[in-house]
Amino acid sequence: MTGGLLEIRGVHKSFGMLEALRGVDLTVRPGEVAAIIGPSGSGKSTLLRAINHLEKVDRGFVSLDGELVGYARRGSTLRELTEREILRRRTRIGFVFQNFNLFPHLTVLENVVEAPIFAQGRPRAQAEAEGRELLARVGLADRADARPRQLSGGQQQRVAIARALALRPAVVLFDEPTSALDPELVGEVLEVIKELAGTGTTLVVVTHEMAFAREVADTVVFMDGGVVIEQGPSADVLDRPASPRTKAFLEKVL
């Protein structure tokens, strides 16, 4: 898998009177692993959802390999794409939710092959073979016929990762993938993400796991108040933060 180049320029987003994003600029290079950290309410999750166009942005744009997500550019105007086109472009971006959001009425394998077959039109046999391969990769080859509620939280999140990867995405977004897990299940999920980090897919991970950010991420992005305060190599940001706000946050969580 080859990773995509993710560019975020001047993104604004308000919910009513609340300005969640106030001009975010961020570039994630192909194959890079970026960890977004910051206090709750800083706009991390909103930014992630804006990348996938689950939230429409008010101003600014997100592009993947130069192709705008959700819009077509004509001169100085951005026109929202038809739903069909948005859905097509979304298949290049995998999304892993905090609460897994697996489809409880489908089996694990059905969860994984649904999108390759019905969003990308791949033949069922091929999708199923690939689906089983992916499940083996996340260590769940033997649970293909189980239903999500029969699995532990950690197993469910690993299925969710397999489901996101089944689209062969250029970018995978993780929205606090371990926040809903019991502490002893966090490791198995981080292990899968870590393994994924070596494959060349671009990863953007919103996380509270500082040790994970330090070990796996190439870049750490610190957000606060709806803007990016600081971005740089993980060791730099985590050990020698340039901004006093980053420093104050890290002192609280470390």
């Binding site: 999304f95 939710f97 649904e114 019905f118 969003a119």
Partner: peptide, 21 residues
């Protein structure tokens, strides 16, 4: 659950498939 709508949308499933399946 709203998360089910979002998961279906984030996978890029066609609208009718999201509803029916």
């Amino acid at each position: 659950d709203q998360g089910q709508h979002e998961a279906a949308a984030s996978l890029g499933l066609p609208r009718h498939r999201q509803v029916r399946r």
